[in-house]
């Protein structure tokens, strides 16, 4: 029963994933690039001249076989980190990625400590 279920999950995942992958990938990249001439829109959401051109260039880069990360590095090199909505993990952005999880773990520890201490007193 359990095994069958897992098998089913697998089949569904991979048949659907491979077909959709390419257009999803593209859209994901567009959504992660900021339109520099707009107010807070992504390349995907914007229909400005600039956004249209960036879409073409990203298409070309994908055709050339560039990976997602390489495309982001390319854009960041030309336009600065500003253009990427999901900051890359590096020394400068370390705290941005680290702090939320630190809060999550820290909060959990505080609750654990609170409950445990109370139990000891009984």
């Amino acid at each position: 029963m359990k095994n069958n279920l897992f098998f089913l999950i697998f089949v569904i995942f991979f048949t659907s994933l491979s077909a959709q992958e390419k257009s999803m990938e593209k859209n994901k990249i567009f959504k992660n690039l900021r339109c520099l001439v707009c107010q807070g829109q992504s390349i995907s959401d914007s229909n400005s001249d600039f956004a249209q051109t960036v879409k073409l260039v990203v298409n070309d880069l994908i055709e050339e076989g560039k990976t997602e990360e390489e495309i982001y590095s390319f854009m960041a090199e030309k336009y600065g980190d500003w253009i990427i909505y999901k900051p890359q993990l590096n020394r400068q952005n370390f705290m941005l990625w680290f702090l939320p999880y630190a809060f999550l773990i820290g909060g959990g520890l505080i609750i654990f400590y609170l409950i445990r201490k109370k139990r000891e007193k009984t």
Partner: peptide, 9 residues
């Protein structure tokens, strides 16, 4: 350095 933090984050 100006960065953007948007929906994907």
């Amino acid at each position: 350095n100006k960065i953007s933090v948007g929906p994907p984050f």
